[in-house]
């Protein structure tokens, strides 16, 4: 991992199109500004990981659970 030290209002440039700026520092909270092309998705890491985890779990359900689901959908009508 590359480690850089930055001060308030200083930036780092990633490639041609991505710029990350330190906007404010208060105690242990740091506010970052991110400029990136529209097709680059920017998410809080823990949020993205929880989506990944949820997708992984949803993908690993067992075939017999599907039978339950079929029966339940009959009851839903």
């Amino acid at each position: 991992m590359l480690v850089l030290t930055r001060k308030l209002n200083e930036s780092i440039q990633i490639g041609e199109n991505i710029e990350i700026t330190v906007l404010s520092v208060q105690g242990d909270q740091i506010k970052l500004g991110i400029k990136a092309p529209k097709d680059i998705e920017v998410h809080r890491k823990e949020v993205y990981m929880s989506i990944q985890e949820s997708n992984n779990e949803a993908a690993s359900i067992l075939p017999n659970i599907l039978e339950i689901l079929k029966n339940t959908s009959k009851n839903l009508k």
Partner: peptide, 17 residues
């Protein structure tokens, strides 16, 4: 996307994504 559980009543939905 659903996280299907047994019993089905415990199933959850991913409303965040």
């Amino acid at each position: 996307i659903l996280n299907v559980k047994d019993p089905f009543e415990d199933s959850t939905a991913n409303l965040q994504a």
